[in-house]
């Protein structure tokens, strides 16, 4: 089973890119299955259903969405297997820019919106810096100069990635992404590891704390001045 993981900021165009790419993949020997993870609600299952391929959606709710995706990876692979797919494409809803959902043997694709400004690639963090392919969307809305600056800033953050410009609305460029997915030849193993670590320690907010005052917080805590300490057992 090939594993393709797609991450990106909300509204960057992950689903649109994916739909255009899958339309092309369907005309090849590839048999794709899609898993879409969202946080609170999704109607993307309806969008994917029109493609006539196996689709599974999951809502992470109270769990961190990237953690949810990784935690359920085995189940997703079983789903793809059962539906005799050979390529599992997983679209995550990763949000915090601090971790990256890619495993060692997946094809990691980061989708980034070029209208988000030239400083954004530097701020996007590991899901851009450890991606294999960076897809730039909405390039038709900004000037050539900004597109070139944006591309340079991506290469500063991730010098080895491939950059593809894709228009999510009309699918221009999606054929190139499909080619990369077809040519990708690593198989997922039962000993997958994440490429990048998540933030350290347990977060008090994650376990339900709502009070703001400093004295209620435990774990790895960092002050505005950069001083960092661990409070807890």
């Amino acid at each position: 089973m090939k594993l393709v993981i797609i991450a990106g900021t909300p509204g960057a165009g992950k689903t649109s890119i994916l739909i255009n790419t899958i339309k092309i993949l369907k005309g090849t020997i590839t048999k794709p299955a899609v898993v879409k993870v969202d946080c609170l609600a999704t109607d993307d299952d309806k969008r994917f259903a029109t493609l006539n391929i196996p689709v599974l959606t999951g809502l992470s709710r109270d769990m961190c969405p990237d953690h949810f995706s990784i935690y359920n990876l085995d189940e997703m692979i079983k789903f793809a297997d059962k539906n005799s797919a050979d390529t599992l494409i997983m679209e995550t809803a990763g949000l915090c820019h601090r971790c990256a959902p890619y495993t060692d043997n997946c094809l990691g694709i980061c989708v980034i919106d070029s209208t988000s400004g030239p400083n954004n690639p530097g701020k996007t963090g590991p899901f851009l810096s450890c991606a294999d392919i960076v897809v730039v969307t909405k390039g038709d809305m900004i000037s050539q100069a900004e597109r070139e600056i944006f591309r340079e800033k991506i290469l500063e953050a991730n010098p080895v990635c491939k950059i593809l410009d894709i228009n999510g609305l009309n699918g221009q460029g999606a054929a190139e992404l499909a080619k990369h997915i077809i040519a990708f030849d690593k198989k997922v193993t039962d000993r997958e590891r994440l490429r990048h670590n998540a933030p350290f320690s347990v977060c008090t907010l994650c376990v339900g704390e709502q009070r703001v005052s400093k004295k209620y917080h435990r774990g790895l805590l960092r002050n505005m001045n950069g001083f960092q300490k661990y409070i807890g057992e």
Partner: peptide
């Protein structure tokens, strides 16, 4: 494949400058 060697530059009606900078700095 090399992103630094992009052959085609595009200009269209929908394109705008979105960067919040002055002309010279940009």
């Amino acid at each position: 494949n090399n992103p630094r060697q992009k052959l085609v530059a595009q200009l269209s009606q929908n394109m705008n400058f979105l960067a919040d900078m002055n002309v010279k700095d940009f």
